[in-house]
């Protein structure tokens, strides 16, 4: 068995809607080991995105324990959590979420800026990444000038540039056609083989099949 990357211990998230308490995630128990490729499945509103956001530390569980690389995230301060996810987690979104005002090159470079990496080193890293994804020729274009598949490619490149241990992908192919979708999934599978842990949320059975483990969610519970 490989090292344990993260573990959720009866983790829940509830929100108050007026006087009602609604459980978005209900007592989730989950262990993720390094090198896994997990597909979260479930209908809309089942809590896939919420679970991803909580794992990605963009959101917090309201109850239960969350341990990431042996560190107790649930009792951490904002600043430390931010340090942790900056270091180890990369995000890929359905809507790509590239910054419109930045070129492909600059979008990929941005995470490095926030890690205070030196200019020469940044250049090398971004160049590697452009090379690897075959988008060197597009480095000076703006997101609006790219197709959806290309934008998602840039999004993945940006997620990978920080050499994360974990990639969280929320419906990464939701806005793409099937051909582009397959290409992106192939890429994920390849990355997984290279050792990156991936958790993806998806509606599609075929995409879920790329994963090594499928977790089904319904009304915030693992079923």
């Amino acid at each position: 068995m490989k090292n344990k990357l993260l573990s959720l211990n009866i983790a829940s998230k509830t929100v108050n809607l007026g006087s009602h308490k609604i459980a978005l995630l209900d007592k989730i128990d989950l262990q993720v080991h390094e090198g896994e490729f997990i597909s979260l499945m479930g209908p809309s509103g089942s809590g896939k995105s919420t679970l991803l956001n909580c794992i990605g530390m963009l959101d917090r569980f309201t109850d239960g324990g969350y341990t990431f690389l042996g560190e107790p995230v649930h009792s951490m301060k904002e600043k430390n959590r931010s340090r942790l996810y900056k270091e180890y987690i990369g995000f890929v979104f359905q809507a790509y979420h590239l910054i419109d005002e930045l070129t492909v090159y600059e979008n990929i470079e941005t995470p490095l800026l926030y890690k205070n990496i030196k200019s020469s080193e940044r250049k090398a890293m971004v160049a590697d990444m452009l090379d690897r994804f075959n988008i060197v020729g597009k480095k000076d274009l703006f997101p609006m000038q790219l197709s959806g598949g290309q934008q998602q490619l840039v999004g993945i490149a940006r997620a990978l540039i920080g050499k994360p241990k974990l990639i969280l992908a929320d419906e990464p192919t939701g806005n793409l056609n099937s051909k582009q979708s397959d290409e992106i999934m192939e890429l994920f599978a390849q990355l997984n083989e290279e050792g990156v842990t991936i958790i993806q949320a998806t509606h599609s059975e075929s995409n879920a099949a790329y994963g090594s483990r499928i977790i089904n969610l319904l009304d915030g519970k693992i079923v």
Partner: peptide, 8 residues
């Protein structure tokens, strides 16, 4: 997005 990418 900037926050997600680590901006404080």
């Amino acid at each position: 997005m900037r926050k997600t990418l680590g901006a404080n």
